[in-house]
Amino acid sequence: MQVYSPGTLKLPASVLTIGAFDGVHRGHQTLLLKTKERAKKLGVPFVVYTFDPPPKVFYKKCQMITSLEEKLNRLKMIGADHVIVASFNELYAKQEVPVFMQELKKINPVEIWEGPNFQFGKDRKGSIKELRRDFKVGILKPLKCEQGELISSTRIRVLQKQGNHSLAQNLLGDLNSISL
């Protein structure tokens, strides 16, 4: 797996997913594995675009679930070919939607896979609708746990804060137990 800064990766084709991926929890794993499956089927690289720190950590000063090193390790275990890590800061947060779209075109995604509520760009003005103007976009429904609740980084943070480390760990999942 190779790691890049924004704008430095150029590919003739790829399958891409974009997200904070804080924790690379079971919900993220489902999305990442779908992206990997499509990349393999299409014979193109599997690319992950992520942020350090995650936007919620930057804006809300909440606890990061995994360090960048751990996130990259988990992405490597899942099988990402390339990972783009954007330093999420005040300057990056002001990036307009068309600028981000131009960057994505450099990696030529034949497909992009996201969750249904994906937003990007300055003030979160970009959405699936904007992505679909230039790219084929697949949507995965959010994953729910055995109790029927959504698996999310926010929920994992709450569980950790409450001291429920066992359930939080269950939602993070063990990458060694899934078939990659």
Rank of each mutant, 00 (worst) to 15 (best):
Q2L: 12
Q2P: 00
Q2Y: 13
Y4W: 15
S5K: 13
P6Q: 02
P6V: 06
G7P: 04
L11P: 03
P12R: 05
T17S: 12
I18S: 02
A20C: 09
F21Q: 03
F21P: 00
D22T: 05
D22P: 02
G23Y: 03
G23Q: 03
R26L: 15
R26G: 00
Q29E: 11
T30W: 01
L31A: 07
L32A: 08
R38N: 07
R38M: 12
K40W: 08
P45V: 03
F46N: 03
V47Q: 03
V47I: 10
Y49P: 00
T50E: 02
P53D: 14
K56Q: 14
C62G: 02
C62E: 15
M64Y: 09
M64P: 09
S67L: 02
S67Q: 03
L68D: 01
N73H: 09
I78Y: 02
I78D: 02
A80Y: 05
A80H: 04
D81A: 05
S87P: 04
F88P: 00
F88W: 09
L91Q: 14
E96Q: 15
E96S: 13
V97D: 01
P98K: 05
F100P: 00
F100D: 01
M101W: 05
M101P: 04
M101R: 08
E103Y: 10
L104I: 15
K105W: 09
K105D: 14
I107G: 01
N108I: 12
V110W: 04
V110H: 09
E111I: 13
W113G: 02
E114Y: 01
G115W: 01
P116S: 10
F120V: 04
G121M: 06
K122C: 15
D123G: 09
D123C: 09
K125D: 13
K125R: 15
K125S: 14
S127N: 12
I128H: 02
K129R: 14
K129D: 15
K129C: 11
E130S: 10
L131H: 00
L131K: 02
R132V: 06
R133G: 09
D134Q: 13
K136H: 11
K136E: 11
K136F: 09
V137K: 01
G138H: 07
G138R: 01
K141R: 10
L143I: 13
C145F: 11
E146Y: 08
E146V: 11
L150K: 05
S152N: 07
S153R: 03
T154H: 08
R155D: 03
I156G: 04
V158Q: 14
V158E: 15
K161N: 10
Q162F: 06
Q162D: 13
G163V: 07
N164Q: 12
N164L: 12
S166P: 00
L167V: 13
Q169A: 14
L171P: 02
L172H: 04
L172I: 14
G173Y: 04
L175M: 10
L175C: 09
L175A: 05
N176T: 10
S177N: 10
S179I: 11
